[in-house]
Nucleic acid binder design. Structure first.
Lengths: 239, 239
DNA sequence: ATGGGCTCTTGGTCTAGACCACGGGATGGA
DNA sequence: TCCATCCCGTGGTCTAGACCAAGAGCCCAT
């Protein structure tokens, strides 16, 4: 079939990538592209060249390669505006059903130094670590890891984790009233790729929250958000 | 020389990537890895396989491939904490020399709808667009694009752009006192790659600021930060 | 019905080459 | 001394195959 018409000087895999992008955008999410071998023959090109083009589309987040099945158009991203401290509310505002999957809840025998420093854990005091996956309509939106001083939350059970931790904290007068949040971007760790159901080359937002009640450090939390699906929102302070 | 010792079941390019990562970490920033052809021979492997390993290290941000020169270890990232609205101060706090390179300053004949909506531009009112590159010790840290209602800043000249725009605004009683900021992560556009001097596969933080003085919309700004070099920092509000 | 295995299709890895395009240093002439 | 040019080493692209491994559906034996 027709050879690749590259505006002289353009690499073939670039031209193929651009043509293929058009093809993908005409597909419904979840639908596969033609097989790599077929595309290679169709364009009269080596399979490696087609793979290079598809890899680029995968980095763009447009396509997901699944071994044994094909190169599928990615699901439509849902873009979520999250104002920090109210995850469930943010999800509900988008008419999504917020759910939480507890992954882990227990004593962290060896917490990172940033955690012990911030929570002021010295002799004997232990850190409780909670890991949760937050979803909207079943789609993973955030992976959270939170540390508390264990003696502050003695009766926190697995059941409390499926709802808002902030309700639990509020009932005990531990609702944070100040602190700071830092945001960086990066690429996901391998284990995060699976839990968040994203591709390894798509960026993520990482957020670190240090929260206080008055002078007392209450919560150290790290959250990972797929960049495709989430936007973090902050009110500007008066100066 | 020694064949690749892969923990049976591991792909060669993975094993090579991991060995190569160790090699890179022993290099000084800017120093090149051995040439691809040499590495391929050394490990008894095809050059394409070595290239696959190096591409992974490039995505990690550890290595930068330069056509005609080699695969060089990336410069040491400088990690900057930026509290919004005070870029120059943030840079100075890290003992860096903040500079600004004005790229463009003029009327935007066709501003995006989000801009005209926010700034309330109707009828003959026009938008002034400013593009600047912010650096610390000569290293690009942010690419900014800012829109103002043109009649609010009639005497803004190219000279004002090299310093803090906020000084200019403050002198005219236009210093923003409220607003909102949204943060997303993504990959850089091709033109951003060059200006920020990053590799195309490294994530960036994108920030959109809508700033007001009282009820009056003053500034719509978009900024792009290399994820390797910047961390955005926000104070937590009292609730 | 149902479960297990077979087979076919798909992407994943890898090879051993080829030629192109860029950068930099050596070389030589003005 | 200075500048243009050439050459060579580098990464960038591309080929035409090969085999491996995972998913999915078929078919048969239970």
């Amino acid at each position: 079939m027709g050879a690749v018409t590259s505006p002289s000087g353009t690499a073939k895999h670039i031209a193929i990538r651009d043509q293929l992008r058009e093809t993908v955008l005409r597909l419904a999410p979840g639908q596969p592209l033609p097989a790599e071998r077929q595309l290679a023959e169709q364009w009269g090109v080596a399979r490696m060249t087609v793979r290079q083009a598809i890899a680029a589309l995968a980095r763009e987040g447009l396509v997901r390669s699944v071994h044994g099945r094909g190169n599928l158009r990615s699901p439509e991203p849902l873009q979520l505006r999250i104002q920090l401290g109210s995850f469930a509310d943010a999800v509900r505002e988008h008419d999504l059903e917020p759910t939480t999957r507890p992954l882990e809840c227990g004593i962290d025998e060896n917490p990172p130094e940033v955690v012990t420093d911030f929570l002021g854990l010295g002799g004997g005091q232990r850190a409780l670590r909670v890991r949760r996956l937050r979803l909207g309509n079943g789609v993973p939106l955030a992976l959270e890891r939170t540390w508390f001083a264990a003696d502050l939350v003695p009766d926190l059970t697995e059941r409390d984790l499926t709802g808002s931790l902030y309700h639990y904290l509020e009932a005990r007068g531990l609702l944070p009233d100040s602190g700071e949040e830092a945001v960086v971007a990066g690429l996901p760790e391998p284990h995060e790729v699976g839990l968040l159901d994203i591709s390894a080359s798509r960026p993520v937002l990482r957020l670190v929250r240090k929260a206080l009640v008055g002078e007392r450090a209450v919560e150290y939390a790290e959250a990972v958000f797929p960049a495709d699906r989430c936007e973090l929102w902050f009110p500007l302070q008066s100066r």
